[in-house]
Design a binder for these strands. Structure first.
Length: 463
RNA sequence: GGCGGGGUAGCCAAGUGGUAAGGCAGAGCUCUGCAAAAGCUCUAUGCGUCGGUUCGAUUCCGACCCUCGCCUCCA
């Protein structure tokens, strides 16, 4: 069965066929580094991570680029308020972002271009010049350069917006009278006092790039004029991605991206996430509450990207329990397998996992396949009906699954102190000294490990 | 107002024109010195409401209700 993804552009499921066989050029819109990213941002990044890992699972070579927007209204406002240079203001947020990605086990992109890098600014200026030459851009009275949306007939096709129906919304500044059309967007913003010392010289004077041109310049600059897949959150569809298409295609004359994939927003406890509602979380907020990156990852991963996700504390707790079940199974397989060589096993769920993902990243169905297999093979293990070699094969399969899900347990080595106490406890138990046994168990618990007595002896698990 | 998602068991959530995956929670059982953990088993005559099409609809069509998102720099 071919891989199918839902293309936002056609609004249909389409077979995935990259421009170049076996290779995928993937561009994903990254964060604006004026603050710590919140879990809504991370839902998008985890979806993109799943996409990349799934493609790699299916043997594609993925070249992924994620941009960092480190100059815009908010970053400028932030650095001005703090009275520090822009780069100094954004640096800690960039660092925090990369830490968070690591915590959530999001595979690093191949490149993280920054909007303020000199070569990217140069490319943006060059693209804007080309647009101006071709009549797609014009300079307004305020010195800014705008994209003329009337010059690109396909404008609105991605978002399915009809130009004539575009009305001035509440967020359109009514004083932007210098634009030809209310929908024209800034390619280059002329410097004004609020920008402080943020600005670059250009053919249009000092100023800074518009948001949309950043992505067009960095995407085409690094990946070439045509991308296979461009991703982002659903809110990016309009105007951001619509603008990117217009700018890029007017410069290159080629279709910008073959596929567009957008993930839905999440809600928190059933309502829109908002600071004012008190249900706004950064990853750090959740870590402070004692949740692990792996738990947050599963909670954000477990719902299909095209469905709204209801993020709840119950959901995190459910993720924690589900992971415990998964870990237990994994440990059981490893133990049963011993050093046996793999032996063929065949369960329909093993293929179902990948097939579910092939079907537009149906993660819920993929996880269901994993858990069905867990129950089925646990039954066999309970009855002693799973050969070591078969367990080995299943463990190998699970390794492949984790190359996509990245939910394997943290490697935790047993501290020598706990190891020693376990030895003492084993002796106490051999002589049926239950009091000593229980007391040592409590002692081990204070070190953060839980002792389980199984038919095969003691086992310590990280609390 | 325009465009587009959702509404499936206590919670989260797949899915299909032929009679409901999976996870969590709950109950029972097994194992066990006790405990904990774990494992197994069970749990929706029902899929927002009302109509229609059909031998048969949760799945298709229509209307309505609720909810969420976008409508010019928010993932």
């Amino acid at each position: 069965m071919p891989i199918r993804y839902f293309n936002s552009y056609s609004r249909q499921l389409e077979d995935f066929v990259p421009l170049e066989e076996g290779r995928v050029r993937l561009y994903t819109c990254g964060p604006t580094v004026y603050n710590f990213a919140h879990i809504g941002n991370f839902r998008a990044y985890i979806f993109e991570d799943l996409l990349q890992r799934h493609l790699e699972f299916r043997s594609f070579k993925v070249h992924r680029v994620m941009n960092l927007t480190d100059v815009d209204d908010k970053t400028i406002r932030g650095c001005r308020a703090a009275g520090i240079p822009l780069a100094v203001f954004t640096k800690p947020f960039k660092e925090a972002f990369f830490e968070d990605l690591k915590t959530l086990r999001i595979k690093p992109a191949d490149q993280y271009p920054e909007a303020t890098a000199a070569d990217h600014i140069a490319r943006m200026i060059s693209m804007i010049s080309t647009l101006e030459e071709k009549g797609h851009a014009y300079r307004a009275d305020d010195g800014s350069v705008y994209f003329r949306i009337r010059s690109f007939p396909a404008y609105g096709r991605l978002a399915h917006i009809v130009l004539d129906e575009l009305q001035a919304g509440v967020r359109v500044r009514s004083d932007e009278y210098e634009k030809e059309n209310v929908g024209d967007f800034a390619l280059w913003k002329a410097w004004d006092e609020a920008d402080g010392d943020v600005g670059w010289e250009s053919p249009w004077g000092r100023g800074r790039p518009g948001w949309h041109i950043e992505c067009s310049a960095m995407a085409t600059g690094i990946l070439g004029p045509q991308l296979d897949i461009h991703c982002g959150g659903e809110d990016n569809i309009f105007p951001h991605h619509e603008a990117e298409i217009a700018q890029s295609e007017c410069v290159t004359g080629l279709r910008f991206s073959k596929y567009w994939m957008h993930c839905k927003h999440l809600q928190v406890e059933g309502t829109k996430m908002a600071k004012s509602a008190g249900n706004f979380f950064t990853l750090r907020d959740l870590m402070d509450k004692g949740w692990s990156g792996r738990e947050v990852r599963l909670a954000l991963l477990s719902v299909k990207y095209r469905e709204p996700l209801n993020f709840t504390m119950d959901g995190l707790a459910a993720a924690r329990s589900a992971l415990a079940r998964l870990d237990e199974w994994s440990a059981r397989l490893t133990e049963t397998a011993g050093s046996a060589p793999p032996e063929p096993v065949s369960f329909p769920e093993m293929d179902a996992f990948g097939s579910a993902l092939d079907d537009d990243l149906n993660i819920s169905a993929a996880l269901a396949a994993v858990f069905e297999l867990i129950r089925e093979t646990n039954r066999l293990l309970d009855g002693g009906n799973l050969a070591p070699g078969q367990a080995k094969s299943l463990a190998d399969w699970l390794t492949g699954v984790h190359s996509v899900l990245a939910l394997e347990p943290e490697a935790a080595s047993l501290p020598a102190e706990v190891q020693a106490l376990l030895g003492l406890r084993a002796q106490a138990r051999a002589s049926k000294d239950w009091k000593a046994s229980d007391s040592i168990r409590d002692q081990i618990a204070t070190l953060g490990w839980m002792v389980k007595d199984t038919k095969d002896g003691q086992k310590a698990i990280r609390l």
